[in-house]
Design a protein around this nucleic acid. Structure first.
Length: 143
DNA sequence: GCCAACGTTGGC
DNA sequence: GCCAACGTTGGC
């Protein structure tokens, strides 16, 4: 299983919106960046990710699961853009803020810090475990 | 609201 | 193929 981070402006698509979709999930559409798209093409059903709110909040607020592998983005007007579908999995107990990530030297290599504009990015297993702990989540996500 | 970073576009 | 101009993102 591979781990990821999905970034969204809450005014455009929030964690609450994602939760409201329930088991049906939702397309992670609207990405118009090749690097982010290529990461989505690598995703497999069952992969897990963090859901991050950019802008005012700047924090990981939940976890998600990939429920459909990459397919054409229904909001794109050309064939270049693909996306996956994800569903909300767990809300965090404690939001993990950008400041918390910056404060931990073990997280200093995260794309979140190094490539602040990248909206879909990989997370290493170590980073996944550490951020889960900071978020007050159990070590293992539910099946 | 500003600006740095960075991606894209289009003229050459 | 280069690069200037421009647009967008996201943190501050």
């Amino acid at each position: 299983m591979t781990f990821w981070l999905f970034k969204s402006e809450p005014s455009a698509w929030s964690w609450a919106d994602q939760v409201a979709r329930g088991e049906a999930g939702e397309e992670w559409n609207g990405v118009r960046n090749y690097q982010a798209r290529n990461f989505m093409r690598e995703m497999r059903v069952g992969d897990r990710g963090f859901f991050y709110h950019s802008q005012k909040e700047k924090a990981v607020v939940g976890t998600v699961e990939v429920i459909a592998e990459s397919h054409p983005d229904s909001t794109a007007d050309d064939a270049r853009w693909d996306c996956v579908d994800i569903k909300a999995l767990e809300p965090v107990k404690t939001p993990v803020t950008l400041d918390m990530v910056k404060a931990d030297p073990r997280l200093s290599d995260m794309a979140l810090l190094k490539q602040s504009r990248l909206s879909v990015q990989p997370v290493t297993p170590d980073e996944w475990r550490l951020i889960r702990a900071l978020a007050g989540l159990p070590e293992q996500a539910p099946e």
